[in-house]
């Protein structure tokens, strides 16, 4: 039984870490987002193994069902089709690698030196299943002990909702204009002219380009 659990744990760990590595290393950003989803799934499986089934379900619902879809939409709304094979890493990417590896070593070194890595002694009578707090207790806690935090979380979500709409909102007049062929042609030549002068393009042009790239979204 212990061996089975250890094997499952090893498989889940491999999934989490491998998928996370692919997420940060892979060139194509859509592939990165898909690997991220795999990693989220691994984390949900780990929660299931830790017997936190409610958190596992919430992980799938929020991360896999919502956050990753949001990320995929954002990538598709901001993708530059012409610029796909561009460099994905910053020039000094090795600084990031050094920082990450150093942090991992600093955290793990004391643990490797001092920690015992033995299993805790079994509490209570042997074989008795531990009493686990489930969704029912969680729900009761939210309306009694953690009421204030719960309300604040709700407020945060409301603020985030409004904020996201305000930030990403585009005026309808700008967004919905369908360009005629002549306008499109003029826009394209103007763009290439702007590019050759190496200046940042004007905001209005930018808005119209977004519109053309994402027409028919809704």
């Amino acid at each position: 039984m212990e061996l089975v659990i250890q094997l499952i744990f090893a498989a889940i760990t491999a999934l989490i870490i491998g998928a996370a590595m692919m997420t940060v290393l892979v060139r194509n950003i859509i592939h990165a987002a898909l690997w991220l989803i795999a990693s989220f799934f691994g984390v949900a499986a780990l929660y299931l193994l830790l017997e936190a089934e409610f958190i596992a379900v919430v992980q799938v619902l929020i991360y896999v069902g919502a956050v990753s879809i949001l990320i995929l939409f954002a990538i598709m709304l901001t993708r530059q089709i012409t610029n796909q094979g561009a460099q994905q890493f910053v020039a000094r990417w090795w600084v990031g690698a050094v920082v990450a590896v150093t942090l991992f070593t600093l955290v793990m070194a004391p643990a490797l030196i001092t920690a015992t890595w033995v299993l805790p002694p079994q509490q209570g009578p042997a074989g008795a299943p531990a009493v686990l707090a489930g969704p029912a207790e969680l729900g009761r806690g939210f309306v009694s002990e953690f009421l204030l935090q719960f309300e604040i979380a709700g407020l945060l979500l409301l603020v985030a909702l409004i904020g996201a709409i305000v930030i990403a909102f585009e005026e309808r007049a700008r967004r919905r204009r369908v360009l005629t062929l002549a306008e499109e042609h003029a826009l394209r030549s103007q763009e290439s002219g702007v590019r050759s002068q190496n200046e940042p393009p004007q905001p209005l042009v930018a808005a119209e380009r977004t519109e053309r790239a994402t027409a028919g979204q809704d």
């Binding site: 089934e53 409610f54 919430v58 799938v60 619902l61 896999v64 029912a136």
Partner: peptide
């Protein structure tokens, strides 16, 4: 324990 939630969480995948 969270069966109904599981149902919808998985369907969103």
């Amino acid at each position: 324990n969270a069966g109904l939630l599981f149902f919808f969480a998985i369907s969103s995948v």
